[in-house]
Design a protein around this nucleic acid. Structure first.
Length: 282
DNA sequence: AAAGACACCTGGGAGC
DNA sequence: TGCTCCCAGGTGTCTT
């Protein structure tokens, strides 16, 4: 078992981060942005400090896996990539390895981005919804708009594997590899099924499973909220109750048969063939 | 337009 | 012990 399984920021982790940092920085004035390493997924604007200095964060929210810090003029867009984490420090604290960016509020509170693999991003946009990364995103998985009917309508004529399909942010945001595997297992749908072959009923089941899995993870995140952003805690994300992800060859928790692994879209894909088979027979 | 491959990046594990 | 190789993944971009 790889030990980095529980540190990937998927939607629930980003939501938990949001809830953790919000009380510390909402309505607080930015006094400085320190960029130690501008080369992340995209270069951080050299003008970022001038753009946000002395602006107050008057709204803080999440769109997919993007965190948006809205100021009176312009919005900071933060993405955690696959190894990023944000923490709050309420007193001066030396930067550690991979601490690439500090946003300092009221000359005291530090919002610090740590990101070993540097797949994350810190961007700025006058109107984030016109930003190319945000403008074309699909609906939130936990919204009413994301339903079985919506999913079914979108799958028509789409031949791609259903797992790749639900990981496509133009279809629905925030479903990464781990939760895609878990949701398909929960819905008893083979990840390699061509999207358009799913029935309305199966799309309903899948939409429900995605919501259920994400809600449970967010709920679990809430219980570890303090350690999540507290400077005294580990910067780690909560561990996940995974039923299939990274469990190749191990017995299925439901039927005791072995979990199998294939590659889809160059990503590890895990499923229980027996559970899917028994579902089809019913 | 859709789908697949590839790129970015690092830490950690396996194998020698 | 230390070196090299390989792998994980989110998501934009390029190619087919």
């Amino acid at each position: 078992m790889r030990n980095d399984v529980n540190i990937m920021p998927e939607l629930p982790e980003v939501e938990t981060t949001l809830r953790g940092i919000k009380p510390h920085i909402l309505n607080q004035k930015i006094s400085q942005v320190i960029v130690r390493r501008p080369k992340l997924r995209w270069p951080i604007k050299s003008t970022i400090n001038q753009l946000v200095k002395d602006k107050t964060v008057n709204n803080l929210y999440r769109v997919g896996k993007y965190l948006l810090l809205e100021t009176s003029h312009g919005t900071i867009i933060i993405h955690l990539g696959m190894s990023g984490s944000l923490r709050i420090f309420t007193q001066p604290t030396p930067a550690q390895k991979h601490d690439h960016v500090d946003i300092i509020f009221n000359h005291q509170t530090i919002l610090r981005l740590n990101d070993p693999r540097r797949f994350g991003a810190v961007l700025w946009a006058e109107d984030p919804f016109k930003h190319p990364l945000i403008a074309n995103l699909g609906p939130e998985p936990l919204s009413k708009q994301f339903s079985g009917n919506y999913l079914w309508a979108m799958t028509q004529k789409r031949k791609v594997a259903i797992k790749n399909f639900i990981m496509n942010s133009k279809i629905v945001v925030g479903v990464g590899n781990i939760y895609a595997n878990e949701a398909l297992f929960d819905a008893k749908i083979h990840p390699n099924r061509s999207a358009h072959t799913l029935s309305v009923q199966e799309c309903n089941a899948l939409a429900k499973s995605i919501k259920k899995i994400l809600r449970n993870a967010i709920k679990q995140g809430g219980t570890t909220l303090k350690d999540f952003v507290d400077s005294n805690g580990q910067p780690g994300y909560f561990s996940l109750q995974l039923k299939v992800y990274d469990r190749t060859g191990l017995p299925c928790f439901v039927c005791k048969n072995n979990i199998e692994e294939i590659r889809l879209g160059q990503r590890g894909t895990f499923y229980c063939p027996e559970c899917i088979l028994s579902s089809v027979m019913n």
